[in-house]
Computed example of a mutant assay.
Amino acid sequence: MKVLELYSGIGGMHYALRESGVAAEVVAAIDINPVANAVYRHNFPKTILMNRNIESLSTQELEKLDFNAIFMSPPCQPFTRLGLKKDALDNRACSLLHILNLIPELKSLRYILLENVKGFEVSQMREKLVHCMETCGYDYRELILSPCQFGVPNSRNRYYLLAKRKSLKFSFVQPSLKDDLSSKLIKLLPKSKHSILAEKNGKINSKSGRMCYTLDNILENVEESKYLLPTKLLQKRAWVLDIRTSENSGSCCFTKGYGHYAEGTGSVYCPFADETIKLKYGEAGNRENNSDEQVQVLLDLKLRFFSPKEVCRLMCFPEDFDFPKDITNRQKYRLLGNSINVHVISRLIHLLHIENKNT
């Protein structure tokens, strides 16, 4: 498999390809974000990296790259529940439309993997994508999956499309879009460090009903003062925070606004037990709203943001993944929020690649 990585970001697809165990190489990566490209180049200095607007790519230029697979995670803003949902009319959807126009001309292309937000599955753009697959001679499978279905303590529901030429048979039959993998399909997947850890040191995750390992497995020793929630944030948002402890087996989806906004952008960490959190919040509720006494009770909980490294681990980036030294924490959170879960993609690459097995 020779992969062209579009919207390459910080290299999540590249790492997923490595983890999948499939014999493959990334022949080139393309992204227009200079900060993301700096991170990609830092971790994959030998890979051809093109700082380009995808809409400017031509068939002739792409054919010179000699690839037979496209992995991509196009912009999600046209489809996200927090956006305007302008769908195919959003300017940020133009690059994907351009790719769909190029696919019929890419005769050597055999495999396609696309990731996007939950909500894409009911979009006009999804209809255009599926139409392209059907008219260009591809079989495809659609799934909505989350890392917590694979033993990872994080919820990040995403739409996935796997497609390949009809001459290449899928290893599984799927009549319609699914939001989970069947037990038979899971058996096709090799054991991973995540599934093994979940079996050995896991608790039931309330979102998936599956065993997930606990958050103590992703925590690092950090300088607390760097990540403590500011007093003003506690005054305004203390009652809507999703607070997790080391013994929890789940966390909320981390978005690009994490570390800057608190509500709906991801979970925060508390070093104390759930019972202590409950008692402290009860005590705070009995104090005058926004008073110094109330804020001090909340400050005693030492609530902090998860560090970028911890978020990396929840998104299953390998330990040797690193950011250049000049990348700020805010940039790190933004880049991670726009990235993919490496482990989930690695499982899907494996399923995309294997063939001729009935499940």
Rank of each mutant, 00 (worst) to 15 (best):
W239C: 06
A38Y: 00
N43I: 04
K191R: 11
L298S: 07
N356G: 10
G11M: 05
E19G: 06
I349M: 08
T328P: 10
V35C: 04
V3E: 02
R158V: 02
P78C: 07
S183D: 13
P230V: 08
T245N: 04
I354G: 10
S56D: 13
K357S: 14
N338V: 03
N37P: 01
R210E: 12
L215Y: 02
Y269W: 12
Q60G: 13
N53H: 01
S95E: 09
N51I: 00
L335M: 15
R287H: 11
N68R: 05
V173G: 04
I30F: 05
L129S: 09
S206V: 10
C94S: 14
L84C: 03
V3C: 08
R313V: 08
Y213D: 10
T135I: 11
A163D: 08
L177S: 09
F120R: 03
V117P: 07
V311L: 05
R110S: 15
D180Y: 13
Y333H: 07
H194D: 11
S58I: 01
K226Q: 14
S246M: 06
T80L: 04
S251I: 05
L113R: 01
P75W: 03
L241H: 12
Q149M: 12
E55L: 04
L299Q: 15
F150R: 06
G285Q: 07
G9H: 02
K302W: 00
L84I: 05
D90V: 05
P308K: 11
V152C: 11
C316V: 04
H98I: 07
I54L: 15
D87L: 03
I349V: 15
T265D: 11
L168Y: 01
N358E: 14
C252H: 07
L6P: 08
L229T: 11
Y159L: 05
K226R: 15
G259F: 10
I32L: 10
P74G: 09
E115N: 08
L113C: 11
C136Q: 12
L228F: 05
